[in-house]
Design a protein around this nucleic acid. Structure first.
Lengths: 202, 202
DNA sequence: TCACACTTGGCAGTCGCTGCCAAACCATCG
DNA sequence: CGATGGTTTGGCAGCGACTGCCAAGTGTGA
């Protein structure tokens, strides 16, 4: 176990932790740079490891997967999503609730430029897209109980409606972000999202 | 080129073609059997090839990818989809058009049992799910021009609405099929689909 | 300072997948 | 029937992502 005796921590971070932090950051930056320079599929783990100054084995210990090198904290997204949604007032509309969650996740990006870069890579690389969609689907499943509770429907095993609502929200996010990338990052994703939802819901 | 001199064919199929057909079928059946018996990830290409009586190299010549061993004719889906949709009367509602396309694709399955088996594998295996979602996204992109034409909107690079409508239709299909599998294949997927769309479109 | 916990790197191996080359194969023509 | 030529096949080596294992290095706490 790594966190055997790690209190919440103030400045009490050990040298190890700081080193880990540094290495992790170095790897992440190297990866993102190489990805944008030569493409995701054309960049090998060996290359990233070498340029970041660590062994492949160590790289895989920091990030279990090549995809993880792009997502930063992928787990973070899901956390913020469910947190935000469960914090919405119970009487709020389901669509409003989902909108709030999505907005919260989008707000997580460091900068517009970084977001654009990531989205561009995501939308232009088949393997990345696949992984992302899969992860997103898992988020949707995590959201199911919350949305069902708000809709007062039965469990998802027999009633498809909650799933449909969630999936539709993300479908609109998809359409919005693809259009946003196609536009070179002009405008606001949430505006596009609203436009999409308005069209869908007549 | 393989089809240098192949007319539509009656009994005029050469021995080669028949052998290919047989081998292909054998491989496909072996793969599906092993997948359902021991799971997709737990089944190796080497095993399938051996039990089907061909070399790995040949197997990969028939089906370029492990995923292809499940989908049968994956390309077929997209074809039927776009064909059906482009055949719809121009004055038909967009939602009706998409519904027709989806229904046509669903009708492609040999039997309810086979469909259930495939869907079950798909929904229970992360790697398969990812691949499927990716392929589906490509279908959606193929549909874009058709739907845009019917909606009279601008190109997808600037107007997200057509994409949103398409993505929503597939989102509902997702919710419907997941629920269908969860129910053990009871009922009709299209009924669930209609239920989903009704909920989404208020 | 010493012993312990943790981290690191290297190596071999698995699995999906591809390129290459020689052998087996079928069809067709003479 | 036999020779010719295009096609299919299988084996082999190799790549890239990823994992388990083990030995060596390094900070930590007593």
């Amino acid at each position: 176990m790594k966190q055997v005796a790690k209190k919440a921590t103030g400045g009490s971070t050990t040298l190890w932790d700081r080193t880990r932090q540094l290495a992790s950051q170095e790897i992440l930056e190297t990866a993102l740079r190489l990805f944008t320079e030569q493409g995701y599929d054309e960049t090998t783990i060996a290359q990233i490891a070498q340029e970041a100054g660590v062994s492949q084995r160590t790289l895989f210990r920091y990030f279990g997967t090549k995809e993880d090198l792009l997502g930063g904290d992928q787990g973070r997204f899901g956390q913020v999503l469910t947190d935000t949604i469960s914090e919405q007032p119970p009487e709020a509309d389901v669509w409003e609730t989902l909108r709030a969650g999505i907005a919260a996740v989008l707000a997580l990006h460091d900068s517009r430029e970084q977001a654009l870069e990531r989205f561009r890579l995501l939308h232009n690389t088949a393997s990345l897209r696949a992984g992302w969609l899969e992860k997103r689907l898992r988020f949707q499943e995590d959201l199911l109980p919350f949305i069902e509770a708000r809709m007062g429907t039965g469990s998802g095993s027999t009633d498809p409606r909650a799933r449909a609502v969630i999936a539709t929200a993300f479908a609109c996010l998809d359409a919005a972000s693809m259009t946003w990338v196609g536009n070179g990052g002009k405008g606001n994703i949430m505006d596009l999202y609203d436009e999409c939802l308005a069209e869908v819901r007549s």
